[in-house]
Design a protein around this nucleic acid. Structure first.
Lengths: 193, 193
DNA sequence: TAATAAACAGACAGACTTGTCTGTTTGTCG
DNA sequence: CGACAAACAGACAAGTCTGTCTGTTTATTA
């Protein structure tokens, strides 16, 4: 439990604890008291840095989104644009699930957990998913340019939906296979364009 | 609020209220007290029929799953097997989201809301998703039989993942477009087999 | 009519929740 | 040293939650 680096700043320790707990247990299932215990900080310190639990959620989503994009960039840094990076995208999502015991997509989880999600949080998540979608579009363009606009859109959505569906099914069955299979299918689909 | 038919049995009224509330607000966000109020029954009556809230969830999932399959069957009853029913599958999921204000898939919601879901509940959901997958396989076979086993599996998973991803994105963006586009894409994919 | 079962109302226990507030300790900077 | 800010511990308010329990009313059936 007490695996927090004591040297880290208070705000950082709160974010670390919230990140772990919100993802592993969910937002609603995680109490303020559990966060302060794991972060080893005082309750008043938490409310000094975050006005409410809801706002902590928003900051968590913002930071998780940045981390996600950064990790993807690092994971695909040495690969050529196009086919290679697209396939690696599926490896990346698979690896994330495996590292986190198949708890699902950080952002989809929040969407489904909070049906009446605040505007700000929902915007952050939509923004993140749009970034992923743009990543796919970029790689498709690298494979075939010029790519007819209508076909590009369609293929982007196909791959985007395929990845999300595969993440969901890997989560549901606690198994990497859906994502592995999806990657193979993408490999074949890319040969047709 | 008081739109429960008073004639309906107590257990039925509980299930009706739970179905509406668990889906609209989520399982954790819905309290026992709210259920008994909407169902217009006494708290002791609820615990007479369901030993705990967790077991109520399981019965809710079972009944929701049956209803889902039944509704799909009715929706596609007059269509020929194969291409038509496959395309209608996407219409069906779109219509469900539209009718429920884009709150997402009943079952995926539970998966994501309860990361430490009980074995029974998880099994019900996995069973349901397997049924959907089997529906797709059946329709693909109707289009092309014999269908090489490996290709059949791959196309099934592709369509299955595509539908789940489209449902997720329609939910996220409160918009039917992802599911409409997915249907069009399926139409094209089916021409290639 | 008497007996049995089902549903009723609602108080209650006990544990949880977020957020506030008081007062103390610690560390840093001039 | 003196002053200021940050973090501390932890009690507390006010509300929520699930589940239990007591005792009453209603309906059915023998």
């Amino acid at each position: 439990m007490n695996d927090q680096p004591k040297e880290a700043g208070v705000k950082e320790r709160i974010m670390n604890a919230a990140t772990r707990l919100f993802y592993q247990q969910g937002y609603r299932a995680t109490g303020i008291n559990q966060i302060i215990e794991e972060a080893q900080i005082a309750k008043s310190s938490l409310y000094q840095h975050f006005a409410s639990k809801d706002l902590l959620l928003d900051e968590y989503l913002l930071s998780a989104k940045d981390q996600w994009i950064e990790d993807l960039a690092a994971f695909t840094a040495n690969l050529p644009e196009g086919r290679e990076k697209l396939l690696a995208f599926f490896d990346f999502r698979r690896r994330r699930l495996e590292q986190h015991e198949f708890k699902g997509c950080t952002f989809s989880r929040v969407i489904y957990e909070l049906p009446n999600l605040g505007q700000t949080s929902a915007d952050i998540i939509r923004n993140h998913k749009s970034t992923l979608r743009a990543f796919i579009t970029t790689q498709l363009r690298a494979i075939k340019d010029p790519y007819p606009e209508a076909d590009l859109e369609e293929m982007t959505d196909l791959l985007f939906n395929l990845s999300e569906g595969a993440v969901l099914h890997s989560t549901l069955f606690n198994n990497s296979k859906p994502l592995e299979d999806a990657k193979k299918t993408v490999g074949k689909l890319l040969k047709t364009i």
